[in-house]
Nucleic acid binder design. Structure first.
Lengths: 261, 261
DNA sequence: CGGGCGTTTGAAGGATGTCAATGATAGTGG
DNA sequence: CCACTATCATTGACATCCTTCAAACGCCCG
């Protein structure tokens, strides 16, 4: 008679929604267990600061739900969002005391957190984990470069159109169970106009004008300030000034990415 | 009687000027030898393309002398330089067939090249080398984020002032043997106005106007189109809109960095 | 000397930021 | 349930920064 399989204790990780998309999925089970052991789930309300710009960052982790903004602030108060982190993305800066960027909750968020030093010890013991982190940072760098093109060479209407298209593709990846017809036509902007402006390097007023204008021209329709329909995708792509295929490149659309925050 | 030390054959690496600043310096001698074995020195004239945007990148390597520009081009021809690579910097994208960015010689350059697959094999066999690459990419990402702040939130005069200050600090690191007095006061811009414009996200005309204006106001003096003196560093810093200490951050000024090109 | 390239300078128009006011929405307390 | 407030989004008028187009200038090299 065969022995019964050992009783399996469900850890928090077994119920983790983003596990299969995050860095956890890319490493061996034994390592997953070690990660699990040093992890702790925390929640923050929208607007809270997770890691401040100057302050020592004592922890890092993975976004489970909600959205983080990674941003830098200038002496006179101007802010630039240098990255948005969606579920499954990694936040925090390994191998550095302070990150030089702030990480804040753009919406209510649930995070899977690790104490930085414990995670770094794990990294130095596991080349496999470090390799996965390396790949994630490489993709993140690709995305950052893509965004530099957007900020340096595109007009504001082009930036808004690009942003919509990237969000649309990214949402398609994140929520593949949504009816495809609805997915095809709708864009949900999960952040405020203020954050959108800080991300696109412009102001809320200009954003608003551009969106209203695209709506008047029949390219999109406005369901609510955060929900839009795409009426003419071809034209939206043309507005973005990009080739369809290069939108979001490897990174923003296809893969979870990582922030040095 | 003690045996004589073994005769030491000088490889190209032993004479390498940038070795102690590059990734080679950070790995063990035995690994350096392996790297040396797969390396090959190549030269390119200014304007030549090292890696094209769409094309498979078959090699990567380290800048020995000269300057590379890492850039993306839009469908209509607009170009954005997303990184400048100085001696000791790494170029090329590991673990990806194509990089999505072009790497071109901004000046005549000498490169230490590796065939990509051979280098990747070395990487997968050596966690130590991969760790060093990882650190370099993290620094590069920090620099990219810094540049996103510049492109997204700073005015053109601020960008020019920031660029001068970064160049000044970087030059100080690169050429520490120059008399300190001369170093303190001079900035050498090693690239054309056209490249400067593509890097700062503006046009040659605007760059020219801003520089002439800074000269008229007594902040800098123009020795030649590529050589400048800093007359009033305090004011130049104020023009840049940044805190002195954060200019160039960790990355652009203090450490060789790495491009995904 | 002349052609070509890179840089500078000038004039004019357009895109975007700024300031101010209005409109919409949600949460709060009476 | 309804004002009331606070916050966010939109709209308008205006100023300005920056790009664009054009031309002149300087310089290197054939």
């Amino acid at each position: 008679m065969k022995a019964l399989p050992p009783v399996r204790i469900l850890s928090a990780c077994d119920r983790c929604e983003v596990r299969r998309k995050s860095i956890c999925n890319a490493v061996k089970p034994v390592l997953q267990k070690e990660i699990s052991r040093i992890s702790r789930v925390r929640t923050f309300e929208a607007g809270n600061t997770i890691l401040a710009e100057a302050e020592d960052s004592v922890f890092l982790g993975i976004v489970m739900s909600g959205i983080l903004r990674v941003q830098r602030t200038m002496a006179d108060g101007r802010q630039q969002i240098v990255g948005l982190l969606l579920p499954a993305d990694f936040f925090g800066r390994v191998f550095e005391r302070t990150s030089g960027v702030a990480v804040e909750a753009a919406t209510d968020v649930t995070l899977c957190c690790f104490e930085r030093h414990a995670f770094e010890r794990l990294l130095s013991r596991s080349p496999e984990l470090e390799h996965q982190m390396f790949l994630a940072v490489l993709r993140e760098l690709d995305a950052a470069r893509d965004w530099m093109l957007l900020l340096g060479s595109q007009t504001i209407p082009e930036r808004v159109a690009s942003f919509f298209l990237i969000l649309h593709r990214r949402t398609t990846v994140i929520e593949p169970d949504m009816p495809s017809r609805k997915r095809r036509l709708s864009v949900h902007v999960p952040i405020s106009r203020h954050d959108m402006a800080a991300y696109l390097g412009t102001t809320v007023e200009t954003i608003s004008r551009v969106i209203q204008d695209m709506s008047r021209r029949g390219i999109i329709e406005i369901h609510s300030p955060q929900h839009f329909g795409i009426l003419d995708e071809k034209r939206l792509v043309r507005c973005s000034g990009r080739e369809e295929l290069s939108i979001g490149h490897r990174c923003l659309a296809d893969e979870p990415h990582m922030a040095v925050g």
